[in-house]
Amino acid sequence: DVEPGKFYKGVVTRIEKYGAFINLNEQVRGLLRPRDMISLRAENLNVGDEIIVQAIDVRPEKREIDFKYIP
């Protein structure tokens, strides 16, 4: 289970104008929005990159997770 405030290692699987999709594993995926990329620009991300993200909002009923990148 993903808990708000905890840090996780994930892999960038898709990049859109509104953010990057980060997979923690095959069943868990969330969104890293540009406003939550402190000191990281979306254009510096590539599909396949491994990054550490913090879960900031977890909505299990919608199967949605928002992440924040903190260097």
Rank of each mutant, 00 (worst) to 15 (best):
R33G: 06
D66T: 13
D36C: 10
R33A: 06
R59C: 08
V2P: 05
R41S: 11
G30K: 03
A20D: 01
Y8H: 01
Y69C: 08
N25I: 06
I70Q: 08
Y18V: 08
T13F: 04
L40T: 06
R35A: 12
E50W: 15
D1C: 15
A20H: 04
I65K: 03
I52D: 02
N23I: 10
S39P: 15
N46K: 15
D36K: 03
R59L: 03
T13Q: 04
E3C: 12
I51P: 00
V11P: 00
D57Q: 14
V12N: 00
L40G: 06
Y69E: 11
Q27S: 13
G10V: 10
D49A: 06
D36Q: 07
R33H: 06
E26D: 14
A20W: 13
D66A: 09
E43M: 13
Y8D: 00
R59P: 02
G19C: 10
L40P: 03
V58M: 05
V53T: 00
I52M: 09
R35T: 10
E64M: 10
N25C: 10
M37N: 07
V28E: 05
N25G: 10
K17E: 10
L45A: 01
G30S: 15
I65R: 02
D66I: 15
N25L: 06
I56T: 08
P60L: 09
I65M: 04
E43G: 10
T13L: 04
A55M: 04
R41K: 14
I38A: 13
I52C: 15
G10L: 05
R63Y: 11
I65S: 03
M37E: 04
E26C: 13
G10R: 00
R41W: 11
I51R: 00
N23S: 14
I52S: 03
F67G: 03
D57H: 15
L32V: 05
V12Q: 00
L32A: 02
K6H: 10
S39Y: 12
L40N: 06
K17F: 10
N23C: 13
S39L: 13
F67R: 02
D66H: 11
G30D: 02
Y18I: 11
Q27L: 11
V47N: 01
K6Q: 09
P60N: 08
D57F: 14
V2Y: 08
I15M: 05
P4R: 13
N44F: 12
T13G: 04
E26W: 14
G10A: 10
F21W: 15
G5S: 03
E3M: 14
I15V: 10
T13D: 04
N44M: 14
P71L: 08
I15W: 03
A55Y: 03
S39N: 14
L31G: 02
L24V: 10
R33S: 06
I51S: 00
V28Y: 08
D36G: 07
G10F: 05
I51H: 00
F7A: 03
L32C: 08
L32M: 05
I15R: 02
V28S: 05
Q27V: 13
V53L: 07
D49C: 08
I52A: 02
R29S: 13
I51Y: 01
G48R: 02
L32F: 04
P71F: 09
Y8Q: 00
A20G: 01
Y69R: 02
I51T: 00
R29L: 10
P60W: 12
G48Q: 01
E43T: 10
V2L: 08
A42P: 15
R33Y: 05
K68V: 09
E16V: 13
K62V: 10
R29M: 14
V53A: 01
R59H: 05
Q27A: 13
I70R: 06
Q27K: 14
S39E: 13
P34I: 15
R29A: 11
I70H: 09
K9R: 13
I22R: 00
R63C: 14
D57A: 15
I52Y: 10
Y69D: 03
F67E: 03
G10N: 01
E3W: 10
P4N: 08
R14F: 06
G48V: 01
N46C: 14
L40W: 08
D1T: 14
E26Q: 12
A55Q: 02
V11R: 10
D49E: 05
V28G: 04
G5V: 03
R59T: 04
N25E: 04
V28A: 04
I52F: 08
E16Y: 11
I56D: 01
Y8C: 03
A55I: 15
N44T: 13
Y69F: 11
V12Y: 00
V28K: 02
G10K: 01
P60D: 06
R41A: 10
L24C: 07
I52L: 11
I56Q: 05
G30V: 09
S39A: 13
T13N: 02
K6N: 08
I65F: 07
G19I: 08
E43Q: 11
P71G: 14
R41P: 09
I15S: 01
N25H: 07
L40C: 09
E16G: 14
R14Q: 11
K9C: 15
I15E: 00
P71V: 09
F21E: 04
A55V: 15
D57L: 12
L24D: 01
G10C: 07
Y69A: 03
P60Q: 07
I65D: 04
Y69S: 02
L24N: 00
E3H: 13
K17L: 09
K62Y: 08
E43S: 13
P34W: 15
R14A: 10
P60G: 07
D49P: 01
N44E: 15
R14K: 10
E64W: 15
N46W: 11
D1R: 13
V11S: 03
D66W: 13
G10D: 01
I70C: 10
G5Q: 04
R14V: 07
K68P: 03
Y18L: 06
G5N: 05
G10M: 05
I15Y: 01
V12P: 00
A42L: 15
L45C: 09
F7P: 02
N44A: 13
N25T: 11
R35D: 10
Q54M: 15
M37K: 02
P34Y: 15
G10T: 00
R59G: 04
V12C: 07
S39T: 11
R59E: 03
V11C: 08
S39K: 12
I56F: 09
E50P: 08
E64Q: 14
A20S: 04
E61L: 09
E50D: 08
V47L: 10
I52V: 12
R29Y: 14
R33E: 04
E26N: 14
A42H: 14
Y69Q: 07
F7I: 08
I51C: 04
M37W: 06
R14S: 10
G48F: 03
V12M: 01
Q27M: 11
D1A: 14
E26R: 13
G48D: 02
D36Y: 09
V11I: 14
I70E: 09
V28F: 08
V12A: 00
V2M: 04
G30T: 03
L45P: 01
S39R: 11
R41F: 10
E61H: 12
F7C: 13
G48W: 04
I15N: 01
N23V: 10
V11E: 03
K68D: 03
R14I: 05
K68S: 09
L24F: 05
G10S: 01
F7M: 08
F7E: 02
N25W: 10
I51F: 03
L31A: 02
A20R: 00
V11H: 06
Y18S: 05
D1Q: 13
G19P: 01
E3Q: 14
K6G: 07
N23L: 11
P4K: 15
G48L: 03
E43R: 10
I22D: 01
D49N: 05
E3D: 07
L31H: 04
I65E: 04
E64Y: 14
G30C: 09
L24E: 01
Y69G: 02
K68I: 10
E3A: 09
R33I: 09
G5C: 12
E61N: 11
Q27Y: 14
N46I: 09
I56W: 08
E16M: 13
Y8I: 01
Y18G: 06
K17G: 07
D49R: 05
L32N: 03
D36W: 09
R41Q: 11
K17C: 10
N44I: 10
V53D: 00
Q27C: 14
Y69W: 10
I56A: 06
F67S: 04
E61K: 08
P71A: 13
P4W: 06
Y69H: 06
Y18F: 12
R41N: 11
I65T: 02
G48K: 01
V53R: 00
R59M: 03
V2W: 05
A42S: 11
V11L: 09
G5D: 03
Q54R: 04
V28P: 02
R63V: 07
P60R: 08
M37T: 05
V58D: 01
P60I: 09
M37G: 06
E16L: 10
F67M: 04
P34M: 14
I52N: 02
N46P: 00
I65A: 05
V53I: 07
G5F: 07
E26Y: 12
A42I: 15
R63M: 13
S39H: 14
Q27E: 12
D49T: 05
E50Q: 13
I22L: 03
G48A: 01
L45H: 04
V47F: 02
E64G: 06
T13Y: 07
R59S: 05
I52R: 06
L31T: 06
G5K: 03
I15L: 10
Y8S: 00
V58H: 05
K62L: 13
M37I: 07
A42G: 11
D57Y: 13
I22F: 07
G30Y: 05
M37P: 03
E64D: 04
F21K: 01
Y69T: 03
R33M: 06
E64N: 07
I51D: 00
K9S: 07
I70L: 11
L31C: 09
D49S: 06
Q54S: 04
L32I: 07
E3V: 15
K6E: 06
R35M: 09
V11A: 01
K17A: 11
S39I: 10
E26M: 11
L31R: 06
V47H: 02
V53Y: 01
Y69M: 07
I56S: 05
F7Q: 03
V2C: 07
E50N: 09
Q54W: 09
